[in-house]
Design a protein around this nucleic acid. Structure first.
Lengths: 345, 345
DNA sequence: TTCCTTAACTTGAACGATCAAATCATGCAT
DNA sequence: ATGCATGATTTGATCGTTCAAGTTAAGGAA
């Protein structure tokens, strides 16, 4: 049990000073080649590993990156956060970092800021990864003011994007655009959009992609859009509303898989609503967003975000900022999603 | 920007020594009431918070608990891990701990053990939380040998349960037992079981619950059981096999929601298999296991594990072991699941 | 030779906390 | 009075690392 090999043990065994060992490991260029090799051999032999707590004390760096784990909302869209965390953790390990989890109660931004404060006072993570940016996000300004490094999965929807903090995002509009084109190519002409209340950056962006795809082929969007809370039941009601109001609609693009699932309930199990209208059966194509496990399970066509790539980009960007050049300007990366076509449309 | 308030700052401001401040915070009973109060006031005023890195150096305790984040398998059962992590993180915060994530490539136990080694050498978590224990689990013996505290979500399937490490588990047999009774109460008599290959502790346990529920009412299980890999497509094939072989079967209990989903594909969209057998339509009740988001989405009756409780029990047990009495014997907690009845059965 | 520069390495201090032992009162029995 | 246990507080050392400054030796220019 060769427990607790310290840098001093290595120094003694290699016949050099502590500092030389430290240099051989962290600043190899200042150590003579031969010495470096000898030290590294001893390190290997004794199984030395730096004690991060001690290093942190001296350098102030913990090699910890904090990320939030959300309470699953409806459990459907939750899987995005899961994949994201997994991606973060994997890339973090490759870059010599670890992911530290935190939660925040429902108090919104302020609740999360309180969590920041707690963490910074105790475990002192080197950086944060934030998800779900939104208009007037107070979290980003709080961190910026304090000079705490962070990246966001999501654009800053309010500030001018030119300056500001580094971020990675998925081009939601491109996703719904592709979904809409796909439906057009299958012959659909009246294509509705089932979205969230206006004012959310993400939701508005996704609606915009649908709008512009229709506009490009000269189709308007009047009466084709409705909005509701992001859950299955509301989605079902909203879809019914939309389909009842306009009997010509044959396809729906949805802002999330939750909504799409609600829409599918209407599309697949035709109810009295349009029996009354004279349609014994009315096939409506549905496209969701996020390609969650549920989408796969029920054969729902959906827009897939490259979550793994987003995660590793976020983390690499942080690692670069923390370890490498602090001078480089914050990067902004917009990744394209892809459409996964299944039975629903 | 009153950055970096140290214990020395507090000591100076309160007119006492560093050690007294430390005592006032960590061992209040040795400090005079009046002094304690004065120190605590200054702590409040200056916003002092212990530097965990420094403390860790001295005490060897990081207040970090490591847990693995799995790569989502089929994405369906993955949500269990997600809920579990969330529960851990919440309870951890309440107990003054944080959850540190790690991943392990596909190398099985040895891969995870390598991750243990890495973590212990670097961030030195105080304990581990393991999931998915199985026969001959090498991880638990590795940790035990090294005296690293840990709990498992899952019984030790090999060792005698009396001694050993602390664990928390859900009574899977009770779950399938309840599911089977439920089906019996609805009039089903020939109830099949769709499970995993024998030899997995969890799978065998779940099959046993089904078996004993049938046995209690005098029913046998011959020809009612089949096994397959835990995924949707294999589940579908296995279900078809079982239903084809025995036309009397009217209900299926499944070892997971993935399998149940496969079974539902057969049950809800009757194929030629029993058209040929003379049944134009054959309603088969299906019950899954885990109550994943997919189950909720498609109306699948499923056995719900109290994941949140499992997580908080795991964590409280660790916290107790780490902070409180080290003398207490390891606890073993078997929690009952509950049946969530939906349209599928 | 003497001085200066540079490369290679060493030494002492410091990060911020806690442990262990020492100090200083205080009260009480002898 | 003296001694002694007890309670409250302080002092010095230490955890393992890296920073900043210091030392040593070798090489080159004056």
């Amino acid at each position: 049990m060769a427990d607790k090999v310290t840098i001093a043990d290595v120094a003694r065994a290699a016949g050099v000073s502590r500092q030389t060992v430290s240099n051989a490991l962290n600043t190899p260029e200042v150590v003579r080649e031969e010495t470096r090799r000898r030290v590294l051999d001893v390190v290997e032999e004794l199984g030395y590993r730096v004690n991060l707590a001690a290093r942190q004390m001296r350098t102030g760096r913990s090699r910890l990156i904090a990320a939030r784990i959300d309470p699953e909302q409806d459990g459907i869209n939750g899987s995005v956060g899961d994949r994201f965390l997994h991606g973060l953790t994997e890339t973090a390990a490759a870059e010599g970092y670890r992911v530290l989890l935190y939660t925040a109660k429902a108090n919104g931004d302020d609740g999360e800021i309180a969590a920041f404060d707690d963490l910074l006072g105790a475990h002192e993570p080197d950086a944060f990864v934030l998800m779900a940016t939104h208009h007037g996000d107070r979290r980003t300004s709080w961190l910026t003011e304090r000079g705490v490094p962070f990246v966001t999965f999501g654009r800053p929807w309010s500030e001018p994007t030119a300056a500001g903090h580094p971020w990675v995002d998925v081009d939601g509009a491109a996703g719904t655009d592709a979904a809409t084109r796909h439906l057009l190519s299958r012959g659909h002409r009246r294509i509705g959009f089932l979205g969230w209340p206006k004012g959310s950056g993400v939701g508005d962006d996704r609606r915009e992609g649908w709008r512009r795809a229709l506009a490009e082929v000269g189709l308007g969007t009047a009466g084709l859009f409705t909005e509701t809370e992001d859950d299955v039941a509301p989605g079902e009601q909203a879809a019914r509303r939309l389909l009842d109001a306009d009997p010509e609609i044959t396809a729906l693009v949805c802002a999330s898989d939750s909504l799409a699932l609600g829409a599918l309930h209407v599309a697949r199990a035709p109810g009295p609503a349009w029996h009354a209208g004279g349609h014994p059966h009315r096939p409506v194509a549905v496209v969701g967003f996020d390609d969650t496990p549920v989408a796969k399970a029920i054969g729902l066509t959906s827009v897939r975000q490259p979550i793994g790539e987003v995660a590793s980009s976020c983390l690499r960007q942080l690692a670069h900022q923390l370890d490498g050049g602090a001078g480089a300007p914050p990067e902004h990366l917009l990744l394209p999603p892809s459409l996964v076509v299944r039975a629903s449309g």
